[in-house]
Amino acid sequence: MLITTPNLGNADEAYARLIAAHDGLSEEASHAMNARLVLILMNHIGNAAVLAEALRLARPKADQPI
């Protein structure tokens, strides 16, 4: 099951760390970092159903595959 309720102990802290991790990177380097981050977290999750649900929720609403 994909968790969509709050699951971070200190959400503000976690968010600030995410933004700070990009400090000093160019936009292109930031996108590349985001891609690596998604791959690392995907592997950690490891569950195909959970990932499918996450991909569905993240895809723009107006642009959902039929």
């Binding site: 709050p6 699951n7 971070l8 933004i19 990009h22 990177l25 985001n34 929720l57």
Partner: peptide, 18 residues
């Protein structure tokens, strides 16, 4: 990139409690 994440949070906030 900070704005990208911020707007992603706002996009998801309507539907997802986290």
């Amino acid at each position: 990139v900070s704005k990208l994440f911020r707007n992603a949070v706002l996009d998801l906030a309507g539907d997802l409690p986290f």
